[in-house]
Amino acid sequence: MCPKDEILSAFCDGEIGSPWDKRLQHHINQCARCSGKVAQYREITGLFHNDGVSIGESMKRVKARITNTLAVQQNETVIHPAAGSMHIPFWRKQVMVPMPVLAAGFSVLFVLVASLFFFLGRNDTQVARTTPEPDPQQNIHVYYSMDNPELLRKILSDKEYHEEVIIELPRENDFSIVGEPEVKRIIGSKGN
């Protein structure tokens, strides 16, 4: 049984490994059809290698062009010695980064951004929750409501005032960690 022509073509290229190449050679020696095919493929290969293309002139011409271009580039490098061995503007410089490193970098960036959005999106964050629950053991002297922010500001600004103060926060006690807190906005920037 004759092998496929693809195999014969690969055989001509020396792409059939041992011991199959020897068996194939044995078959080709005995089969007129296969030996004809191999001869046809080898004739085509022969045409490539005996095409008579003369490259002498092209070789000289291209060599002169290459030498000239390299010399021009060398001069440019001398003119711009700070740029190192070859003057390349920084916006045209290329940095080789292996694909796995790039993928890992993007993954980390994605996780960070996703986490940030997740935490920003939550409005019941413990950090922002304030619950004014006075400790009954503590000695509370004054109790101020946010209803009168002017008075509150005056007391907080008074350096002589040493009483402990509890400030009742607004009923809306869920704050976002970003943005201006309600208390600070009411009492103004002087309050501390």
């Binding site: 045409l47 490539f48 005996n50 095409d51 008579g52 003369s54 002139e57 092209s58």
Partner: peptide, 13 residues
């Protein structure tokens, strides 16, 4: 004339 010296190479190309 320079590159193709005979018919064979033109035939291949």
């Amino acid at each position: 004339k320079r590159v193709l010296e005979n018919e064979t190479k033109k035939e291949v190309q």
